[in-house]
Write a protein that binds this DNA or RNA. Structure first.
Ligand SMILES: [Mn+2]
Ligand SMILES: [Mn+2]
Ligand SMILES: [Mn+2]
Ligand SMILES: [Mn+2]
Lengths: 218, 218
DNA sequence: ATTAAACTTTTGATTAATCAAAAGGATTGT
DNA sequence: ACAATCCTTTTGATTAATCAAAAGTTTAAT
């Protein structure tokens, strides 16, 4: 049986490199998983042994096709569970990520399939992230970080790429919800900030935070 | 953090001895959990150290109040999850035990509370087992094993005390569902069998199997 | 070409959980 | 009282996952 730990490593490799093109550095993976670099190296070797990743020592690591398939299934479980917790159980989108982080390792395919039916075969989770199909394909959209928008741009929010509970609560409090239409009222590269109009109110964000909000032109 | 393994040990101790009166033998616990006696001894010592059980070496083990409280909460999670899987996700009662065996360790109190609301604060799971309240109290019913019934008794099925998938499928196929009314048509202690009328059909059961079906007089 | 900085890997230890097999108690029959 | 039997506990090993700190590589700067 494949452990939760292994699933987390595979999933994180996928999230850090969804296209499977780049090599991920050991340290980057370690940081993403909150383990020491030595732990990551050790697990990478185990995964390479099992044929789930390709490892070029000192250069980086990359999922194999087999590893990617497993990873995508974990992501599918995670995102369906998240949407289920929000849409069916009525939980807040800011709380469900941590729940899903655990549930993704224990819900069976059958349960996921039932949830999927009940949800009406959704394509995106509560944060705007695409839900892989059971076959492992991902819907693609062309989105742009809010931080790239120019003064006067009117766009709609399509994805919040930050799972932190406090950030999500802040977003919710300021009307920065999926599908919301916003307008760029100011942008100051020097001050590293962007100002938008959301529901008639001005909201100021640092560019780093704005980089985690992805938008599409309406 | 309390591990799944510890939760399984505590839960099993509770299920083997719900009243907390008897001492459970190491071997009995080991068998119930499918581990070797040595493993059970070792875990019992860990649990005793943590104040979750009281251990009298060579005589047996018993939950402390603290251990019992933890155990009851695991049982609550297990049973709410089971009912949720059946009533909301539409799974078969014969399949949900194994799912719940995993989910009971990862669903949060908040998720359980939401499921409980959605289910309308149920008192019994799909097998007729009582669901402990959040405070840890258990509804009590006075049931009797079907094997104790006498010829001519008319009773209704209140609990199936066997989580085995094949047994549950057999029960379902023969109309032995919760609430079903049945009548004892024959009982043969020598042949170790009992015959009942269920939905007009005769069903023959061994007395051991009939002992796992609990009934109440209508 | 050296050296320093930054990163990765290796080494050695630790913890939780488990097993097989040896050793130790308790119980029961003679 | 004395075994025989049946448990339980102990012992010694193993596996997965982790960390701290030492050692090794790569790259970039002088
Ligand atoms: Mn998430
Ligand atoms: Mn996870
Ligand atoms: Mn069950
Ligand atoms: Mn369990």
């Amino acid at each position: 049986m494949i452990s939760s730990t292994v699933e987390n490593y595979l999933k994180e490799l996928f999230l850090l490199n969804p296209d499977g093109e780049t090599q991920i550095a050991t340290g980057e993976l370690a940081k993403a998983l909150s383990v020491t670099p030595g732990s990551a190296t050790s697990m990478i070797k185990t995964l390479a042994q099992a044929g789930l990743v390709e490892h070029r020592p000192h250069y980086g690591v990359k999922l194999t096709n087999e590893g990617r398939t497993l990873a995508v299934h974990v992501v599918r479980r995670h995102r369906i569970v998240e949407l289920f917790l929000v849409n069916i159980l009525g939980m807040d989108w800011s709380e469900v990520h941590d729940e899903a982080e655990q549930l993704e390792h224990v819900v069976s395919d059958q349960v996921i399939s039932k949830m999927d039916d009940l949800l009406g075969h959704p394509t995106h989770d509560p944060h705007g992230d695409p839900i892989p199909t059971p076959e492992g394909t991902l819907p693609v959209r062309s989105l742009q970080p809010l931080s790239f928008c120019k003064l006067g741009d009117t766009v709609s929010i399509a994805r919040i790429g930050n799972q932190n509970t406090n950030f999500l609560k802040f977003a919710e409090d300021n009307g920065l919800l999926l599908g919301a239409t916003i307008k760029v009222a100011n942008k100051n590269e020097v001050a590293d900030s962007i100002t938008i109009i959301s529901k008639g109110e001005e909201v100021v964000l640092g560019l780093a935070a704005a980089g985690r909000i992805e938008v599409e032109f309406a």
